[in-house]
Design a protein around this nucleic acid. Structure first.
Lengths: 201, 201
DNA sequence: TGATATAATTAACATCGTTAAGTTACATTA
DNA sequence: TAATGTAACTTAACGATGTTAATTATATCA
């Protein structure tokens, strides 16, 4: 009965092959400029084969994005360990978040801008990776309030506000690379530090 | 010599007809889902006629966005008058900015997300409307610093940070309408007030 | 070996942005 | 008024796209 298993393994392998080809092309050339035929070419299969593994192009995009979020989550998890200084932790996480976005701009836009546009009504549903990232953010804010480093702000609202700020600077830096920004790090610091400062007791 | 003028007038009129048809379709159905043929149908002309007035589809998008930016600028100009309380002014402007984005979400995304994606290397060039909006923001920050309501922050960086924050909350609210946000106004206030608070002397 | 199921391919469709060639409408000149 | 030139618009067509249906190859089981 090992046949079935081997077949399943091969299928899974090909699925991953499609995914990684799609990812690379999406990231390097942009979702719009990548055709199903181009993806198929890259892995030396016929274009229509992809439809045996993914419903359509949007579904392919969706799967790529899920991977991206897992990546981001891992990056943040690494910072989670140290519980001694939650404020410092929050700052580091914010920087890591923005830097992740700048390191994988296409992934970031894909996940947080393009996908919601193509797949209406996805709201970081229960148990999703996005929800995990967000609840992790809440936990850190909560800890800052508990330690009275922050004043008694509403935890959820504050977490959302912080997310807004880092999301905004990430997207602006990605989308307007030619704008005469202040030095990139200086701007990121300004956004994060100003928010943190505004929350302190 | 009135003939030339009449012809020019008619040309301009048709140009505006194209623009407003394109705007309506872009806004309602999304840039990607609108074809040149659909625009042409709407105004009962042949598709290729559009190319006599606009270089290509991206150019059409570009022109639509310029109009949007002018709209935003007008909205903000209204607040400019009162110079007495620059901080209050800044807060009001921030709220007006976000509310503009939420009122015309497709316009906003078109201008600040979709366009940069399709038209690389546009960086708020000299004399553009976008530059005006930004310099207006700088002026307000500068005034706050001068009045010593803000500490001696770098004006440009601070303006960019503020822009980041309002941009971020605008986009999150547009893109994830189903996320369990805090009450919309509460979140917007949190973002803006936290930033302002973080800048105070 | 031959039947059967599954995987992958070929062919095709409708639609897209865009270009080139052709046609109409109209103001100007003879 | 009739011929001419030109600007405005349309028709026809190209190559590329996402996707579906029909078809062929491949590998497993009897």
């Amino acid at each position: 009965m090992g046949v079935k298993e081997r077949r399943a393994r091969e299928k899974e392998q090909l699925r991953r092959q499609i995914l990684s080809a799609a990812r690379e092309l999406f990231v390097n050339e942009g979702y719009e400029n990548v055709s199903m035929r181009k993806i198929a070419d890259k892995i030396e299969y016929s274009p229509t084969m992809i439809y045996l593994y993914f419903k359509d192009k949007a579904d392919l995009l969706d799967s790529v994005c899920k991977e991206s979020l897992l990546n981001l989550l891992n990056t943040l998890e690494l910072l989670k360990r140290d519980k001694s200084n939650p404020v410092e932790n929050l700052i580091k996480s914010g920087k890591a978040y923005v830097e992740f976005g700048l390191k994988y701009p296409q992934d970031y836009k894909l996940t947080f801008v393009i996908r919601p546009q193509f797949q209406k009504g996805l709201g970081l549903q229960e148990g999703s990776v996005g929800e995990k990232v967000f609840s992790y953010l809440c936990a850190m804010v909560s800890e800052c309030v508990r330690q009275k480093t922050f004043r008694a702000v509403d935890v959820e609202t504050t977490a959302q506000a912080l997310w807004s700020a880092v999301h905004g600077v990430t997207l602006l830096l990605i989308d307007f690379p030619d704008f005469p920004w202040a030095a990139k790090d200086k701007l990121i610091d300004a956004v994060i530090n100003t928010m943190i400062e505004g929350l302190k007791a």
